[in-house]
Design a protein around this nucleic acid. Structure first.
Lengths: 210, 210
DNA sequence: CACGTTACCTACGTAACGTAGCTTACGTGC
DNA sequence: GCACGTAAGCTACGTTACGTAGGTAACGTG
């Protein structure tokens, strides 16, 4: 990442800055670094330098490097979940719901492919609060998906619903990875692949869905 | 992880040890730590201490911490891919293939759930050789899956095949995560969920498959 | 039994996390 | 208009852990 790049996405206020503004600025900068270089290769020092403050300020806002990362993931997931819920509102058929939901997801990636790395970068169900928090955030998104699916399959067992929500989220994640490796493919085609696969799988298993 | 635990899985030879033996021992130890604590929280020092050698030996074998991690992932994926190919040999129907393939995957997790963290722990398509290598290893496994699927859909476009292989691998990964969070579920039921979802999705989209 | 090779070691430089303790700007009531 | 609490920021430090330089000692083979 060049400094120029960072400056483009950063509200660049110097000197004393109110807490909420500084926090948003730091999250923007941190997200850039984490997405490009990964967790390990990103240092708090770099983030602070781009924001033109000293390291302790970052720690004051987020407690630790893990805290910074979690805040990035939390924000990205919250934003995506809102976009998702909004996208599927006012759809009636399952087919349309999957299409619109998929479109919402891949639109996020199209606007900023680096978001993928934030949403899915660290994956393991590790011991300790860091890993548990990350898993919880993931499961939160899956719950949103399960709620959406539930509207189309009111009689389905909760386990099946839950499992299919996980399955569909897995399909999205992998197709996202594939798309990043094959960026020439237009979004609509990726969405079609996603919608076709998810719809077939889900419909067959919940026959009373439309 | 207790020392007892490590000693159970470790061929515990002290003093001078031939290269290949030491390497296997270090991989076993490293895999334990990485799976339990994650990449960041694992130190080369700890690995060396359990093996009762000094740190430079670890570097001599794997070059860097990333090298140790990559070697763990490479071994785990190679082993799984062998198990997968063997499991689906001599199956004829797509349905059976997906069932046996899924069973092979979830059997690995049942034998050692920590393997999940090695196979999928670090996920991002990061810049730099580390991230590229990890993505390449993942795509290698997906290629094995695509080859298996191709046998059941000889006329399918390569893009569809590739995409569906990714989708199916995503379903497996997420159901694995779900199973780890819900360990009371018997393996057969997880395999059923996987097989049902994958089969429906794939069959619908490749009508000439059985 | 000499000698190369392989396994291993101690000791160091550097980077980065996280914290302690202090300083300075801002705004609000008297 | 100034005193004072609070919010924003800083320098300096301790600690851990990556990675390397340079050296030692066991093994085996002619």
């Amino acid at each position: 990442m060049t400094d120029t790049n960072v400056h483009q996405i950063t509200e660049h206020r110097r000197g004393r800055v109110p807490r909420v503004v500084r926090e948003r600025q730091l999250l923007n900068i941190a997200e850039e670094f984490f997405a490009q270089r990964g967790y390990e290769a990103t240092s708090i020092e770099e983030i602070a330098r781009v924001a033109e403050i000293s390291r302790p300020i970052v720690y004051e806002h987020f407690g630790s490097k893990e805290g910074v990362y979690l805040a990035c993931v939390r924000r990205a997931r919250t934003e995506f979940e809102h976009a998702l819920v909004e996208a599927v509102a006012n759809t009636t058929s399952l087919y349309d719901t999957l299409e619109r939901g998929g479109d919402a997801f891949f639109s996020v990636l199209e606007r900023d492919p680096r978001r993928w790395a934030i949403l899915f970068g660290i994956s393991a169900p590790l011991q300790g609060s860091f890993g548990e928090e990350l898993t919880e955030l993931r499961f939160g998104t899956v719950s949103r998906i399960a709620e959406i699916l539930a509207a189309h399959a009111p009689d389905a067992e909760t386990e099946r619903l839950d499992v299919f929500a996980h399955a569909i989220s897995g399909v999205g994640e992998q197709l996202g990875r594939w798309w990043i490796a094959n960026p020439a493919v237009p979004r609509q085609r990726v969405v079609s692949h996603f919608r076709d696969f998810a719809w077939a799988g889900f419909k067959q298993l919940v026959p009373n869905a439309d």
